[in-house]
Simulated scan of single mutants.
Amino acid sequence: MTDIAVTLAEKRGTLTAEDKLGFGKIFTDHMFVMDYVSGKGWHNARIVPYGDFDLSPAAMVLHYGQAIFEGMKAFCTDDNRIVVYRPMDHWKRFNISADILSIPQMDSEVLNAGLNKLIEIDKHWVPKSLGTSLYIRPFVISTDPYVGVKVADQYTMFIITSPVGAYYASGFKPVKIKVEDHFVRAVKGGLGEAKTPANYAASLKASEVAKKEGFTQVLWLDAIEQKYIEEVGTMNIFFKIDNEIITPELNGSILNGITRRSVIQVAKDWGMKVTERRISIDEVFAAHEQGKLQEVFGSGTAAVISPVGELSWKGRNIVVNNNQTGETSQKLFDHITSIQQGRVADKFGWIGEVTKL
Protein backbone atom coordinates (compact mmCIF):
# COMPACT_ATOMS: atom_id res chain seq x y z
CA MET A 1 0.00 0.00 0.00
CA THR A 2 1.60 3.27 -1.14
CA ASP A 3 -1.28 5.50 -2.27
CA ILE A 4 -2.35 8.15 0.23
CA ALA A 5 -5.64 9.87 -0.55
CA VAL A 6 -5.85 13.55 0.35
CA THR A 7 -8.92 15.60 1.28
CA LEU A 8 -7.99 19.21 1.98
CA ALA A 9 -9.67 21.37 4.60
CA GLU A 10 -11.95 24.07 3.20
CA LYS A 11 -10.50 26.62 5.59
CA ARG A 12 -6.88 26.82 6.68
CA GLY A 13 -5.79 28.08 10.07
CA THR A 14 -2.83 30.35 10.77
CA LEU A 15 0.10 29.87 13.07
CA THR A 16 -0.27 31.49 16.48
CA ALA A 17 2.37 34.02 17.52
CA GLU A 18 5.40 31.87 18.19
CA ASP A 19 5.98 33.25 21.68
CA LYS A 20 2.42 32.20 22.62
CA LEU A 21 2.44 28.59 21.42
CA GLY A 22 2.65 26.68 24.69
CA PHE A 23 2.73 22.90 24.37
CA GLY A 24 0.15 20.52 22.95
CA LYS A 25 -2.83 22.87 22.76
CA ILE A 26 -2.84 23.99 19.13
CA PHE A 27 -3.30 21.60 16.20
CA THR A 28 -2.76 21.90 12.47
CA ASP A 29 -5.33 21.69 9.68
CA HIS A 30 -4.97 18.02 8.74
CA MET A 31 -4.27 14.54 10.11
CA PHE A 32 -3.13 11.23 8.70
CA VAL A 33 -5.45 8.24 9.22
CA MET A 34 -5.14 4.54 8.40
CA ASP A 35 -7.37 1.55 9.22
CA TYR A 36 -6.79 -2.08 10.08
CA VAL A 37 -9.18 -5.01 9.86
CA SER A 38 -8.16 -8.61 10.54
CA GLY A 39 -7.84 -10.50 7.27
CA LYS A 40 -7.40 -7.28 5.27
CA GLY A 41 -4.48 -5.65 7.04
CA TRP A 42 -3.65 -1.95 7.14
CA HIS A 43 -5.44 -0.02 4.41
CA ASN A 44 -7.19 3.21 3.43
CA ALA A 45 -4.27 5.52 4.20
CA ARG A 46 -5.51 9.08 3.90
CA ILE A 47 -4.98 12.68 4.92
CA VAL A 48 -8.15 14.46 5.99
CA PRO A 49 -9.10 17.68 7.77
CA TYR A 50 -8.26 17.60 11.48
CA GLY A 51 -11.40 17.04 13.53
CA ASP A 52 -13.43 14.81 15.77
CA PHE A 53 -14.20 11.28 14.63
CA ASP A 54 -16.93 8.73 15.32
CA LEU A 55 -16.20 6.05 17.88
CA SER A 56 -18.57 3.48 19.32
CA PRO A 57 -19.15 3.67 23.08
CA ALA A 58 -18.28 -0.04 23.01
CA ALA A 59 -14.91 0.55 21.29
CA MET A 60 -12.44 -1.78 22.95
CA VAL A 61 -9.85 0.95 23.58
CA LEU A 62 -12.29 2.66 25.96
CA HIS A 63 -12.68 -0.47 28.06
CA TYR A 64 -9.42 -2.41 27.80
CA GLY A 65 -6.84 0.20 26.84
CA GLN A 66 -5.22 -1.38 23.78
CA ALA A 67 -3.42 1.70 22.44
CA ILE A 68 0.06 3.04 21.71
CA PHE A 69 1.59 6.37 20.73
CA GLU A 70 4.83 8.10 19.79
CA GLY A 71 6.25 11.60 20.16
CA MET A 72 8.40 13.15 17.43
CA LYS A 73 9.45 16.61 16.29
CA ALA A 74 9.92 18.49 13.04
CA PHE A 75 11.98 21.67 12.79
CA CYS A 76 12.52 24.56 10.42
CA THR A 77 16.24 25.03 9.82
CA ASP A 78 17.99 28.35 9.33
CA ASP A 79 17.96 27.78 5.56
CA ASN A 80 14.20 27.07 5.59
CA ARG A 81 14.33 23.28 5.27
CA ILE A 82 11.78 21.28 7.25
CA VAL A 83 13.33 18.23 8.87
CA VAL A 84 12.20 15.48 11.25
CA TYR A 85 14.50 14.25 14.00
CA ARG A 86 15.31 10.52 13.87
CA PRO A 87 12.01 9.52 12.22
CA MET A 88 12.87 5.90 11.39
CA ASP A 89 14.05 5.28 14.96
CA HIS A 90 10.70 6.51 16.19
CA TRP A 91 8.78 4.29 13.76
CA LYS A 92 10.84 1.29 14.86
CA ARG A 93 9.99 2.00 18.49
CA PHE A 94 6.33 2.51 17.52
CA ASN A 95 6.27 -1.06 16.20
CA ILE A 96 8.01 -2.35 19.33
CA SER A 97 5.21 -0.79 21.39
CA ALA A 98 2.69 -2.32 18.98
CA ASP A 99 4.18 -5.76 19.51
CA ILE A 100 4.02 -5.41 23.30
CA LEU A 101 0.33 -4.42 23.06
CA SER A 102 -0.49 -7.12 20.43
CA ILE A 103 -1.25 -4.48 17.81
CA PRO A 104 -0.47 -5.46 14.19
CA GLN A 105 2.86 -4.28 12.81
CA MET A 106 2.90 -1.31 10.44
CA ASP A 107 5.10 -0.56 7.44
CA SER A 108 7.55 2.12 8.59
CA GLU A 109 8.03 3.39 5.04
CA VAL A 110 4.28 3.92 4.64
CA LEU A 111 4.10 5.69 7.99
CA ASN A 112 7.00 7.93 7.10
CA ALA A 113 5.55 8.73 3.68
CA GLY A 114 2.26 9.63 5.34
CA LEU A 115 4.01 11.86 7.85
CA ASN A 116 6.06 13.63 5.18
CA LYS A 117 2.97 14.26 3.06
CA LEU A 118 1.10 15.59 6.10
CA ILE A 119 3.94 17.98 6.95
CA GLU A 120 4.21 19.09 3.31
CA ILE A 121 0.50 20.01 3.31
CA ASP A 122 0.67 21.81 6.66
CA LYS A 123 4.20 23.20 6.38
CA HIS A 124 3.07 26.76 7.12
CA TRP A 125 2.36 25.52 10.67
CA VAL A 126 6.03 24.72 11.36
CA PRO A 127 7.36 27.52 13.60
CA LYS A 128 10.79 29.03 12.93
CA SER A 129 11.88 30.55 16.24
CA LEU A 130 14.66 28.99 18.29
CA GLY A 131 13.19 26.52 20.77
CA THR A 132 10.00 25.93 18.78
CA SER A 133 9.06 22.89 16.70
CA LEU A 134 6.19 20.94 15.19
CA TYR A 135 5.33 18.20 17.67
CA ILE A 136 4.18 14.98 15.98
CA ARG A 137 1.85 12.55 17.72
CA PRO A 138 1.25 9.19 16.00
CA PHE A 139 -1.12 6.84 17.84
CA VAL A 140 -3.16 3.67 17.38
CA ILE A 141 -6.39 2.69 19.11
CA SER A 142 -8.44 -0.51 19.04
CA THR A 143 -11.91 0.21 17.66
CA ASP A 144 -13.89 -3.06 17.76
CA PRO A 145 -17.39 -2.38 19.18
CA TYR A 146 -17.08 -5.25 21.62
CA VAL A 147 -17.19 -5.39 25.42
CA GLY A 148 -15.03 -8.43 25.97
CA VAL A 149 -11.36 -8.99 26.74
CA LYS A 150 -9.44 -10.11 23.65
CA VAL A 151 -6.98 -8.85 21.08
CA ALA A 152 -8.90 -6.49 18.83
CA ASP A 153 -9.63 -7.15 15.16
CA GLN A 154 -9.97 -3.49 14.18
CA TYR A 155 -7.66 -0.51 14.72
CA THR A 156 -7.28 3.06 13.57
CA MET A 157 -3.91 4.78 13.32
CA PHE A 158 -3.63 8.58 13.37
CA ILE A 159 -0.92 11.21 13.10
CA ILE A 160 -1.75 14.66 14.42
CA THR A 161 0.67 17.59 14.63
CA SER A 162 0.96 20.59 16.91
CA PRO A 163 3.22 23.67 16.76
CA VAL A 164 4.85 24.02 20.16
CA GLY A 165 7.10 26.26 22.19
CA ALA A 166 9.31 25.17 25.06
CA TYR A 167 8.01 22.18 27.04
CA TYR A 168 8.61 23.90 30.37
CA ALA A 169 7.02 27.32 30.61
CA SER A 170 9.74 28.36 33.05
CA GLY A 171 12.39 27.76 30.39
CA PHE A 172 15.66 25.84 30.42
CA LYS A 173 16.53 25.85 34.08
CA PRO A 174 16.83 23.17 36.77
CA VAL A 175 13.68 21.40 37.96
CA LYS A 176 12.82 19.97 41.35
CA ILE A 177 12.24 16.19 41.40
CA LYS A 178 10.64 13.94 44.00
CA VAL A 179 12.01 10.40 44.26
CA GLU A 180 8.90 8.24 44.59
CA ASP A 181 8.98 5.86 47.57
CA HIS A 182 5.35 4.74 47.73
CA PHE A 183 3.76 4.35 44.29
CA VAL A 184 5.20 2.13 41.55
CA ARG A 185 4.83 2.41 37.77
CA ALA A 186 6.07 -0.69 35.95
CA VAL A 187 7.87 -4.01 36.32
CA LYS A 188 10.03 -6.06 33.99
CA GLY A 189 7.77 -8.12 31.74
CA GLY A 190 5.01 -5.50 31.92
CA LEU A 191 4.27 -2.41 29.85
CA GLY A 192 7.11 -0.18 31.02
CA GLU A 193 9.05 -0.38 27.77
CA ALA A 194 6.03 0.54 25.63
CA LYS A 195 4.67 4.01 24.92
CA THR A 196 1.11 3.22 25.89
CA PRO A 197 -1.48 5.36 27.70
CA ALA A 198 -1.60 2.88 30.60
CA ASN A 199 1.98 3.76 31.58
CA TYR A 200 1.15 7.42 31.86
CA ALA A 201 -2.15 6.80 33.64
CA ALA A 202 -0.20 4.77 36.20
CA SER A 203 2.02 7.78 36.88
CA LEU A 204 -0.68 10.40 37.39
CA LYS A 205 -1.45 9.89 41.07
CA ALA A 206 2.17 10.11 42.13
CA SER A 207 2.72 13.14 39.90
CA GLU A 208 -0.34 14.86 41.32
CA VAL A 209 0.89 14.34 44.88
CA ALA A 210 4.40 15.51 43.96
CA LYS A 211 3.17 18.70 42.30
CA LYS A 212 1.10 19.57 45.36
CA GLU A 213 4.34 19.29 47.32
CA GLY A 214 6.10 21.69 44.96
CA PHE A 215 7.93 19.26 42.67
CA THR A 216 8.01 19.32 38.86
CA GLN A 217 8.12 15.57 38.27
CA VAL A 218 8.60 12.17 39.88
CA LEU A 219 11.68 9.96 39.66
CA TRP A 220 10.62 6.32 39.69
CA LEU A 221 12.45 3.54 41.49
CA ASP A 222 12.16 -0.14 40.59
CA ALA A 223 8.87 -1.70 41.65
CA ILE A 224 10.38 -4.72 43.42
CA GLU A 225 12.96 -3.33 45.83
CA GLN A 226 12.21 0.39 45.38
CA LYS A 227 15.94 0.87 45.38
CA TYR A 228 17.20 1.17 41.81
CA ILE A 229 16.53 4.24 39.68
CA GLU A 230 14.48 3.80 36.52
CA GLU A 231 13.21 6.99 34.86
CA VAL A 232 11.38 10.27 35.40
CA GLY A 233 7.70 10.52 34.47
CA THR A 234 8.35 11.86 30.96
CA MET A 235 12.12 11.45 30.63
CA ASN A 236 15.07 9.13 30.96
CA ILE A 237 17.56 10.20 33.63
CA PHE A 238 21.34 10.74 33.71
CA PHE A 239 23.81 11.34 36.55
CA LYS A 240 27.27 12.84 36.17
CA ILE A 241 29.32 11.38 39.00
CA ASP A 242 33.06 11.99 39.21
CA ASN A 243 33.16 12.88 35.48
CA GLU A 244 31.30 9.71 34.46
CA ILE A 245 27.83 9.91 32.91
CA ILE A 246 25.65 7.10 34.28
CA THR A 247 22.14 6.18 33.17
CA PRO A 248 19.97 3.21 34.21
CA GLU A 249 20.34 0.28 31.84
CA LEU A 250 17.36 -0.82 29.78
CA ASN A 251 15.65 -3.64 31.64
CA GLY A 252 12.20 -4.03 30.12
CA SER A 253 10.51 -1.49 32.38
CA ILE A 254 12.35 1.62 31.12
CA LEU A 255 11.49 3.40 27.89
CA ASN A 256 14.24 3.16 25.25
CA GLY A 257 14.28 6.91 24.71
CA ILE A 258 15.38 8.29 21.34
CA THR A 259 16.90 11.36 23.02
CA ARG A 260 18.53 9.03 25.56
CA ARG A 261 20.28 7.29 22.67
CA SER A 262 21.30 10.66 21.25
CA VAL A 263 22.83 11.77 24.56
CA ILE A 264 24.80 8.54 24.89
CA GLN A 265 26.12 8.70 21.33
CA VAL A 266 27.03 12.39 21.45
CA ALA A 267 28.74 12.12 24.85
CA LYS A 268 30.77 9.10 23.73
CA ASP A 269 31.70 10.95 20.54
CA TRP A 270 33.05 13.74 22.73
CA GLY A 271 35.23 11.21 24.55
CA MET A 272 33.23 11.20 27.77
CA LYS A 273 32.86 8.07 29.85
CA VAL A 274 29.24 6.87 29.58
CA THR A 275 27.92 3.86 31.48
CA GLU A 276 24.54 2.12 31.30
CA ARG A 277 24.03 0.15 34.50
CA ARG A 278 21.89 -0.28 37.57
CA ILE A 279 22.28 2.66 39.91
CA SER A 280 20.60 2.94 43.28
CA ILE A 281 19.21 6.05 44.87
CA ASP A 282 21.53 5.37 47.83
CA GLU A 283 24.52 5.60 45.48
CA VAL A 284 23.34 8.97 44.16
CA PHE A 285 22.85 10.41 47.64
CA ALA A 286 26.22 9.00 48.76
CA ALA A 287 27.91 10.57 45.72
CA HIS A 288 26.40 13.90 46.72
CA GLU A 289 27.71 13.54 50.28
CA GLN A 290 31.17 12.77 48.90
CA GLY A 291 31.09 15.81 46.60
CA LYS A 292 31.15 13.64 43.48
CA LEU A 293 27.61 14.28 42.15
CA GLN A 294 28.23 16.96 39.56
CA GLU A 295 25.02 16.99 37.50
CA VAL A 296 21.63 15.33 37.10
CA PHE A 297 19.55 15.77 33.95
CA GLY A 298 16.66 14.19 32.12
CA SER A 299 16.30 13.58 28.39
CA GLY A 300 13.20 13.30 26.22
CA THR A 301 11.67 14.36 22.93
CA ALA A 302 9.55 17.13 24.44
CA ALA A 303 12.13 18.87 26.63
CA VAL A 304 15.32 17.51 24.95
CA ILE A 305 17.44 18.05 28.08
CA SER A 306 16.03 19.00 31.47
CA PRO A 307 18.57 19.83 34.19
CA VAL A 308 17.66 18.74 37.72
CA GLY A 309 18.53 21.09 40.54
CA GLU A 310 17.05 19.28 43.52
CA LEU A 311 16.18 15.71 44.52
CA SER A 312 14.01 14.81 47.48
CA TRP A 313 13.78 11.28 48.87
CA LYS A 314 12.11 10.23 52.10
CA GLY A 315 12.41 13.70 53.54
CA ARG A 316 16.06 14.10 52.53
CA ASN A 317 16.81 16.89 50.07
CA ILE A 318 19.96 17.38 48.04
CA VAL A 319 20.77 20.36 45.83
CA VAL A 320 22.68 19.53 42.65
CA ASN A 321 25.31 21.91 41.27
CA ASN A 322 24.00 24.77 43.44
CA ASN A 323 20.69 24.49 41.57
CA GLN A 324 22.37 25.73 38.41
CA THR A 325 22.35 24.20 34.94
CA GLY A 326 25.48 22.09 34.60
CA GLU A 327 28.11 22.48 31.90
CA THR A 328 27.40 19.04 30.38
CA SER A 329 23.61 19.52 30.45
CA GLN A 330 23.91 22.85 28.68
CA LYS A 331 26.43 21.56 26.15
CA LEU A 332 24.25 18.54 25.28
CA PHE A 333 21.13 20.68 24.96
CA ASP A 334 22.90 23.17 22.70
CA HIS A 335 24.44 20.48 20.52
CA ILE A 336 21.39 18.26 20.06
CA THR A 337 19.09 21.20 19.35
CA SER A 338 21.67 22.55 16.91
CA ILE A 339 21.63 19.22 15.05
CA GLN A 340 17.83 19.28 15.03
CA GLN A 341 17.69 22.79 13.61
CA GLY A 342 20.51 22.34 11.09
CA ARG A 343 23.03 24.66 12.74
CA VAL A 344 25.71 21.96 13.04
CA ALA A 345 26.50 19.02 10.77
CA ASP A 346 24.43 15.85 11.22
CA LYS A 347 27.33 13.41 11.42
CA PHE A 348 25.11 10.63 12.79
CA GLY A 349 22.49 10.64 10.01
CA TRP A 350 19.63 11.50 12.36
CA ILE A 351 17.84 14.11 10.23
CA GLY A 352 15.07 13.21 7.80
CA GLU A 353 14.47 16.04 5.34
CA VAL A 354 10.85 16.62 4.33
CA THR A 355 10.52 19.79 2.27
CA LYS A 356 11.41 23.49 2.03
CA LEU A 357 9.25 26.39 3.10
Results as ranks from 00 to 15, higher is better:
K227A: 12
V61Y: 10
Q294Y: 12
V37D: 10
F27R: 00
T337Y: 02
K25L: 13
I96F: 00
K11M: 08
G13R: 10
I47H: 14
T337K: 06
P174G: 09
A210W: 04
D79A: 04
H90W: 11
L101V: 09
V187A: 14
D99A: 13
D29C: 03
M60D: 01
A17C: 09
L250H: 04
L118Y: 08
V184I: 14
A166N: 05
P248S: 02
G233Y: 06
I246S: 10
V344F: 09
G189E: 06
P104K: 13
R343V: 10
P307I: 12
G300H: 11
D269K: 09
G271S: 07
R185E: 03
V149I: 14
I258A: 09
S329W: 01
H124C: 05
Y85W: 15
K188V: 06
K20M: 12
L357T: 13
P49Y: 00
P163H: 10
K227R: 15
F158T: 02
S102C: 15
N256D: 14
L293G: 13
Q226G: 08
L62T: 02
I100P: 05
D269L: 00
G13F: 07
V140D: 01
G114A: 10
R46F: 03
Y64N: 05
M88Q: 05
A286L: 04
T7G: 02
K188E: 04
K20V: 07
G41C: 13
V61E: 02
P248T: 03
D89I: 02
P127V: 06
I254R: 09
A286V: 07
I103G: 04
F285H: 09
N323D: 02
I177M: 04
V284M: 11
W220L: 07
T247L: 14
H30S: 10
R46C: 00
V6Y: 14
G148L: 02
K211Y: 04
K20G: 00
D181H: 13
V83D: 08
P57F: 11
M34P: 13
L130H: 11
K292V: 05
A166Q: 01
N243Y: 06
D19R: 08
D99F: 00
A59Q: 10
L191F: 15
A198T: 06
T161M: 12
I305V: 04
A9Q: 11
D29V: 03
S280E: 11
P49Q: 06
V218M: 09
K268T: 03
L130N: 07
I82E: 07
H30E: 11
K347P: 01
G309K: 06
Q324H: 08
N44E: 15
S162C: 06
E244M: 14
T337L: 08
I279A: 01
W42Q: 08
I305K: 02
